[in-house]
Write a protein that binds this DNA or RNA. Structure first.
Lengths: 241, 241
DNA sequence: TGAATTTGGTTGTATATACAAGTTGATCGG
DNA sequence: CCGATCAACTTGTATATACAACCAAATTCA
């Protein structure tokens, strides 16, 4: 059922198509091989080739028209609403270099706002990490994160240069829900210094609260310079089912 | 290929499952019939029953575990996508009063950026509307919208105090896709005047491009004062497929 | 010329089948 | 009693096939 590389067949075809698009061998809006052509080329059945095309269409990578063919969608469509996730992924997806710098990692008395958000008592100990994310050596985002010690007792023992908090948390406390608030704000001094921007530079601030099975896990402010960062999204409105 | 009601078979099964969930006949996290049981019940092949389950899983209605079965997911997953919507709806949902003020409604030569976005020629005529949205008499959002005349020839004849452009466009050219970019910017003079904010006030700018069957329909800048507006969202993360 | 028709290619839906992979519970053996 | 094995069932992947729906371009016909 799998090919030589231990991968499912439909996944192999998906990877092939994605690589063709990434290298611009298949430019935007160009027509790509038909289901039958792909089936022949990869020695699979048409249904398997079809599945690869289907999934890429759902992801917004392709669009298809009955009777005509399959085409490369505009590259923006890659990102869905779920693009609101890990900054490291985003940077790497752009083909750029990501680096994380740990500024602070400690336990501190829980501020009031955070207590409400995480369901803790005020001034009860809460874990806190402050990290600067770099894209190609330029500071892009300041991540200030409060973590519920009851849910993630080993948080302070991690090395967040090797693994981002988001990655670590996803591993130990799988996400079930996330709440987001997006705002435009002016940077406070701390943000300004770490992102190396002037005080007049507007920033996009994402306030994120994440939940796992057991309840609220973390509460984070993710602040980025407006001139360097934008939030992109693609919405596919499905015809009524 | 279709059943008596002119519906595809897999759609019939989806509807059946959804109705069972809606009436709470199948409560949250309960196990639902297997692929084979559904196939027998509806006299279809297993692959067809499977497709219904598959699509509902992608929509977050169900979750499935290999070797175990298919289960009803938590009902949250419904609303996440539509959060980025019409400002008038948002205001009304908050129980506040919405008013629109029409500043400008005209045809003008298409600027370069807009030409690219809408697939028009540069300086070709394009429809343009400028509207201020008020929440309880306070200006909240400035909507600058360019509309493709080929898709919506009667745009200039509308009364956008009674009906927002978004509502009108949804009616005459049903949305199939939408692209969004969210940015933090400082307001230009026009924005500053209409929103009655100082030049130093950061703004949240939503750039939105909408598509219908025939192609790109409209391109809009939706700018709001950072101190008055935030974009809120809830994301339900699906259990592993 | 121009409108109607045919033809070939493409995606969409549906079936029947086979085996792989994973979970659960029963059975068997120590 | 406990552990290992097995059997039954579920979802996951893959194939081969058939026909429907649709589109575009070529062909035919008036």
């Amino acid at each position: 059922m799998e090919n030589s590389s231990g991968q499912k067949k439909f996944a192999t075809i998906k990877d092939y198509i994605l690589s063709q698009i990434e290298t611009a061998a298949w430019p935007e809006h160009s027509r790509i091989p038909s289901e039958n052509e792909l089936a022949t080329q990869f020695s699979v059945s048409r249904m398997t080739a079809r599945r690869a095309l289907q999934e890429l269409t759902e992801q917004g990578v392709l669009y298809r028209t009955q009777g005509v063919g399959s085409f490369v969608a505009s590259p923006k469509s890659q990102s869905s609403l779920l693009e609101i996730r890990n900054i490291a992924d985003e940077i790497q997806r752009r083909g750029h270099f990501h680096k994380a710098e740990l500024v602070q990692l400690t336990s501190l008395p829980c501020p009031g706002v955070v207590a409400t958000a995480l369901g803790l008592s005020r001034n009860a100990p809460v874990f806190f990490s402050l990290i600067v994310h770099y894209e190609n050596q330029q500071p892009l985002q300041l991540e200030a994160r409060y973590v519920n010690p009851q849910q993630v007792p080993d948080y302070l023992a991690q090395d967040f240069v090797l693994q981002t908090p988001h990655e670590y948390l996803s591993a130990v406390a799988p996400l079930t829900d996330a709440e987001h608030i997006v705002e435009a704000v002016l940077p406070d001094d701390l943000t300004r210094q770490h992102l190396k921007i002037p005080a007049s530079e507007p920033c996009l601030r994402l306030t994120r609260r994440t939940f796992s099975r057991g309840g609220a896990v973390s509460f984070a402010y993710l602040t980025s310079a407006g001139s360097r960062y934008r939030l992109g999204g693609h919405l596919s409105i499905k015809p009524k089912t």
